[in-house]
C-alpha cells in the first residue's frame, strides 16, 4: 500500500509564503494598501483586520486579480506579476463569496479546475477523490453544488483549492456563514493543512479565535498598513508577574501585602489601570495573597498574568476600543 508521507516534517520550508515590499494600492479616494511591507513566513498565517483594512485587496493582489500601484509582491519567492503562470500553478485559492457553478457537482467542479491547472484527466479524477475525501464530501460528491448546504459549499471551495496539490493556499474567510458545527469541521480541516499535509496557509478572518486555532502567526492590518505581527502561541511564564485587583481599599491591601511578600523577593507596583502589580507569582506568594484577602475580608476581583495576550495585541492593533 502506498502510504502518504508527512510532508510537513520532511519538506524544506523554502521561501516564505508571501512577501510584500512597499506595496500600495489605491481605489479612487481609498488607499487600500499603504506602503505595506510584511513577510508571511510561518506555516500558517492568519490575516486579521477590520472591514476595509486591506485583507481582501492584499489577497487579490497576491493572486494577480488586481495589480499593485507600486511595490513588489512575491508568492513562494515568485513575482506575482512576472511569474504569473507559476504562481497560478503553485497556489490554491478559496474565495469568501459563493463562486461555484450551481448546476455542477463537486466532483465535476474539482475535476474541471484540476484540468485547467494542467493535470491530465486521470490524475484530475484521482486527486478529486482524494481531496473530496479529505474534506469529508466523498458521499455527496455527485450532487449538484446548488443543493449543498453552506458548509458543504465551503468544503467544496476548499477542495478545489487543494486539488492540484498547491504549496500555498489562500483562504478568504473560510468559516464565513457557517453554523457552529460546520465551523468546527472547517477549522479542523484548515488546521490539518499546515500540520499534517504540509501546505502553507494564509487565512484571512474577522474572528481571532479562528486564527488562534488554525494558524501559527497572526498579521494584523489597519488601513492598509501593518499594525502587528506576532506568533499565536503565547508562552506564559509560570510564576511570572501578575496583576491583582481587589475590592475595597486597594492601597491598604497593597500596604498590608508588601511586607508579607518582601521575604520572597517580590516587589509591588501600581499598574496603569490602578491594579496591584506583583513582580512574581509563585505558589507561596499566591497563598499569601489568598490568606491576606481572607483575613481582611477582601474580595479578589482579578488575578491575571501581566504579560499581554494575543487578544490584547490584536485589539490594540486593530484600533478597537473596548468598553
Amino acid at each position: 500500500m502506498r502510504v502518504s508521507t508527512d510532508p510537513g516534517t520532511t519538506r524544506d520550508p523554502g521561501p516564505p509564503g508571501m512577501e510584500c515590499v512597499a506595496v500600495s494600492k489605491r481605489f479612487g479616494a481609498v488607499q487600500a494598501l499603504d506602503d505595506l511591507t510584511v513577510t508571511f513566513g510561518a506555516a500558517a498565517t492568519g490575516l486579521l483586520g477590520a472591514n476595509g483594512a486591506g485583507k481582501s485587496t492584499l489577497l487579490r493582489a497576491a493572486l494577480g486579480l488586481s495589480r499593485p500601484d507600486s511595490g513588489t509582491l512575491r508568492i513562494l519567492g515568485l513575482d506575482t506579476v512576472a511569474d504569473r503562470g507559476e504562481v497560478r500553478r503553485r497556489v490554491g485559492y478559496m474565495p469568501e463569496h459563493p463562486c461555484l457553478p450551481a448546476d455542477m457537482s463537486a466532483q465535476d467542479v474539482c475535476v474541471q479546475l484540476a484540468r485547467l491547472r494542467g493535470l491530465g484527466r486521470r490524475d484530475a479524477v484521482r486527486r478529486t477523490s482524494e481531496v473530496l475525501f479529505a474534506v469529508g464530501l466523498e458521499e455527496e460528491r455527485r450532487r449538484p453544488v446548488g443543493s449543498y448546504s453552506l458548509g458543504m459549499q465551503q468544503r467544496t471551495k476548499l477542495a478545489q483549492a487543494l486539488v492540484h496539490g498547491p504549496d500555498l493556499v489562500l483562504l478568504d474567510e473560510p468559516t464565513s456563514g457557517l453554523d457552529p458545527a460546520g465551523r468546527e469541521e472547517m477549522l479542523a480541516i484548515v488546521r490539518r493543512l499546515s500540520t499534517e499535509l504540509g501546505i502553507r496557509v494564509i487565512a484571512s478572518s474577522h474572528v481571532l479565535e479562528d486564527i488562534e486555532r488554525t494558524c501559527d502567526e497572526v498579521v494584523v492590518l489597519r488601513s492598509g498598513t501593518l499594525a502587528a505581527q506576532r506568533g499565536v502561541e503565547v508562552d506564559h511564564v509560570l510564576a511570572g508577574p501578575v496583576e491583582l485587583r481587589t475590592t475595597g481599599d486597594t492601597g491598604g491591601f497593597a500596604a498590608a501585602l508588601e511586607p508579607l511578600l518582601a521575604p520572597h523577593g517580590v516587589t509591588l507596583a501600581p499598574t496603569a489601570s490602578g491594579d496591584i502589580g506583583l513582580s512574581a507569582s509563585s505558589d507561596a506568594v499566591l497563598d499569601l495573597v489568598r490568606d491576606l484577602a481572607a483575613e481582611r475580608g477582601t474580595g479578589v476581583l482579578r488575578l491575571v498574568p501581566a504579560e499581554r495576550g494575543l487578544e490584547d495585541v490584536v485589539v490594540d492593533a486593530m484600533g478597537v476600543h473596548r468598553g
Binding site: L63, G64, L65, R84, G85, R88, V91, G92, Y93, P95, H97, P98, C99, L100, P101, A102, L113, L116, R117, Q160, A161, H164, P166
Partner: peptide
Amino acid sequence: RDRVLSLYFATALS
C-alpha cells in the same frame, strides 16, 4: 452569475 471567474483567473486560466 456564478462568480466563477475569480477562481479561473486566480489559479486556473489566464
